[in-house]
Design a binder for these strands. Structure first.
Lengths: 130, 130
DNA sequence: ATAATTATAGTAATCATTATCGTTATTATG
DNA sequence: CATAATAACGATAATGATTACTATAATTAT
């Protein structure tokens, strides 16, 4: 299980994710990491992004249009996608509130519920959202 | 805008979506509609599913793995994806609760929020979820 | 130092989805 | 009703995102 070797590429990808509030796609990460590792392969970026997500050191976000996005912030929070510019923003809410949502869902669902994600749709302030 | 013509294929797709509680992918819809229209094209299925979604007569659901899914139920509700079998289930909650979520998000977000989706992760009762 | 093993770069392959285009179905009009 | 106008279709090619493959390089263990 712990048969995992260090790699500078993976470290750079994790570092980059931690340093930005954007929610870059794999391709955006690729273009950025390329500045430090000009020969890095897009496949390496995908492999490491998924590795980080599997290890809980990053979060994968699926939006209805465009490719998946990645978030280096691993404390539970929601996201807002701007319907005008398409950017994705963090939306921190009280974690107790999120936990209550899980419990509510667990009550209503015939089975068990452990976690959830939420994606809000709106207009960011740059695009005129009041 | 209303330059929309009737088509038997689209009617059949809408009928199928309305008749099932599953949340089929475009490919699943294709395989099913094919029984009635053996020559229907996958492109036609995609085009009509997106048309229905744009008109508000169906809902497109993005999950982190696999293709998008479609839901003929258009009253606002959440979804639960079973982490064991991968099926997607409806989770109806009081609409007032969903509206409160929007208002809460609107308060915290620097911009405006109009709607949201939520995807819960759990284990369905067929897979042993208590 | 060297053996063992994981990660990489480069590239091909796959999967989901959309675009193109000549033909067909539906609707509007004379 | 006949036919013109137009949207939808089926077939297929093209695209975009992601994964798989493989020989080489980097990391870790002996």
């Amino acid at each position: 299980m712990a048969n995992l070797k260090y790699s500078r590429q993976r470290a750079a990808i994790k570092e980059y994710l931690s340093s930005t509030l954007d929610h870059p796609t794999a391709d955006t990460v690729y273009l950025h990491i390329r500045e430090e590792f000009p020969n890095i392969s897009l496949g390496t970026v995908y492999r490491n992004l998924n590795l980080l997500a599997d290890m809980g050191e990053a979060v994968k976000i699926s939006t209805p249009d465009g490719g998946d996005r990645f978030d280096g912030c691993t404390v539970p929070h929601y996201h807002v996608v701007c319907q005008s510019c398409g950017r994705v923003f963090d939306l921190k809410v009280d974690e107790r509130y999120m936990q209550e949502m899980n419990e509510l869902a667990d009550q209503y669902f015939e089975g068990s519920v452990a976690a959830h994600t939420a994606l809000f749709y709106g207009i960011c302030k740059d695009c005129g959202g009041s």
